[in-house]
Simulated scan of single mutants.
Amino acid sequence: MAATRYRRFLKLCEEWPVEETKRGRDLGAVVRQRVAQAFREGESTQIADPATCDQMYESLVRIHTNFYKNKYPRLKDTSFTGVTVEECKLVLASVASSKVKKGLGSYQ
């Protein structure tokens, strides 16, 4: 049964996108690292608590598939600040240009 769990986690890691703009703090990279640590022996890894392992997998799948974003859609694509999703992504990017940061300086 550990082999099946291992393959499911590997498939999830393959599907999870890599966010190049968030180097060093990308959730996908952290998930890959934790899966590698948890399954050091690959398919032959012994799982101490299979129920917790399955619960973690299901939680990660919900995050990956935007389950709650789709279940509770937002009415608008902006927040109270008026900043758009694209502008937020630029500000939060690890390698954001100084021009973008200066342009949105009042929101930092």
Rank of each mutant, 00 (worst) to 15 (best):
V85E: 12
Q108S: 13
V61D: 11
Y107N: 02
A29W: 08
L27Y: 09
T65M: 10
K102G: 01
E15S: 10
V95E: 03
K89W: 07
Q46G: 06
D54P: 11
S44N: 12
G103D: 03
E41Q: 12
V100F: 09
S59H: 15
C13P: 00
M1A: 08
H64N: 13
S98M: 13
F39N: 03
L90P: 04
K22V: 08
W16K: 04
M1F: 08
T78V: 15
T78Q: 14
S59T: 14
S94T: 15
V85N: 12
Y68N: 06
A96Q: 03
A48K: 02
K101N: 11
S79M: 15
A3M: 00
D26C: 13
P73H: 14
G103V: 06
K99M: 10
L90W: 12
K76H: 10
G24Q: 14
S79E: 15
V85I: 15
Y107V: 00
V95Y: 04
A48W: 00
V95P: 02
R7W: 12
V30M: 01
I63K: 00
T52H: 10
A2E: 05
K22F: 01
R7H: 05
S94E: 04
E14Y: 01
R74H: 02
P73R: 15
S94K: 11
G103P: 06
R8A: 12
L27F: 12
P73V: 10
L75E: 06
K71Y: 14
E87P: 04
M56S: 00
K71S: 04
V91K: 01
A29V: 05
Q108Y: 14
G42R: 05
S98I: 09
R34T: 11
L12F: 08
S79A: 12
A29M: 12
K22P: 03
P73A: 15
K11Y: 06
E87V: 03
Y57P: 04
T84L: 07
P50G: 08
E41R: 01
K102W: 07
Q33M: 02
K76A: 11
Q46N: 06
G82F: 15
C53S: 13
L104V: 03
T65N: 09
T45F: 07
R23A: 08
L27D: 15
T84F: 14
I47A: 00
V31E: 10
P50Q: 02
H64Q: 08
M56A: 02
A29D: 07
Y107F: 10
F39W: 05
R25C: 12
Y57Q: 02
K89L: 05
L10E: 15
P50Y: 10
T84P: 00
E58F: 15
A51E: 14
Y68K: 01
A2K: 04
R5F: 05
T21Q: 01
R23D: 09
T84I: 13
D54G: 09
P17V: 07
T4L: 05
R8I: 09
R25Y: 01
R32V: 04
R8L: 10
R5S: 05
E86Q: 07
G24Y: 09
